[in-house]
Simulated assay, not measured.
Amino acid sequence: MKILVIKSSPHEHSSSNLLAGHFIRGAKEKGHDITEFDAAHGNLHPCIGCDACRMSGPCCQKDDMEGVREAVLTSDMMVFVTPLYYFGMSAQLKILIDRFYSFNGELMAKQMKTALIVAAWDSGEWTMKEIEGHYMTLCRYLRFSNQGMILGTGCGTPAMTSKTRFPQQAYEFGKRIGM
């Protein structure tokens, strides 16, 4: 299976990227073809709502989204990876998802498999409620087939994250994908 992993932490050595690395290792061991895109360090501009694309592209903006669109449409699965920022996804990931507008129809028809990996400093039972709800709403609207979530609480730094159960869960999740 072709899996596109979209990372979005501004910090290269972040807790969310650490969890993504474990997922990727497990998925590669299972034989999946992995492509990574770093939304935090890519050249992406916010959707300007001009509707020039009419939801079927191309977008009038010329940036990395052209390549992301190709990667999305040729993949079997997307994995969204984000730190938890004020109980939602990073702005960098939100910019990328907002730009799905330019190929909404194609994306909906594809019924893409997706997953979510989040790392949060907080460890309260309510910490992931809002991002989980947002992700599930995206799945419903875009007809994504949710394959699962790693919601890493108590993962404020990579050192903290390494001491939790979440790296192992991410690795095992990667190994289970496609079964």
Rank of each mutant, 00 (worst) to 15 (best):
R143D: 10
A170I: 07
P10K: 10
I48R: 07
K129V: 11
E125W: 06
R165A: 15
A115S: 15
L151N: 08
Y135A: 13
L96H: 04
D122M: 11
E12W: 02
K129H: 10
E66S: 09
L19N: 09
G156L: 12
G152Q: 04
V79G: 13
Q169D: 15
G148N: 11
L151C: 10
G174I: 00
M112H: 05
M55K: 09
Y171G: 02
R165W: 03
E66G: 07
A170S: 14
G124S: 15
M128H: 12
S145K: 12
K163C: 10
F37C: 05
R140C: 07
L96Q: 02
Y86M: 14
A115M: 07
S15P: 12
H32C: 00
P58M: 05
C155R: 01
K163H: 08
T74V: 10
K129E: 14
E12T: 13
C50P: 04
P158F: 04
A27T: 02
M179N: 12
E66C: 03
I150T: 10
L84V: 10
M77A: 11
Q147V: 06
T127S: 15
I34D: 00
H11W: 08
M108Y: 03
F173M: 03
S9M: 10
V79R: 01
L116I: 11
M136E: 15
K30C: 04
T153I: 11
M55L: 08
M136R: 14
D64A: 06
T114W: 00
G154M: 11
G88R: 06
N146F: 03
V5G: 01
A120P: 15
M128Y: 05
T157C: 13
S145H: 08
K94W: 06
A109C: 03
M179Y: 05
Y101H: 11
T35D: 02
P158G: 14
S145P: 01
A27P: 13
F173L: 12
I177F: 02
A71E: 09
Y171A: 01
K163R: 14
G21Q: 05
H32F: 00
R140Y: 09
D98S: 10
G42E: 05
H134Q: 13
N17S: 11
M179Q: 12
T153L: 05
I95S: 05
I150A: 04
G88I: 06
K2F: 09
L73K: 01
V81P: 01
K2H: 14
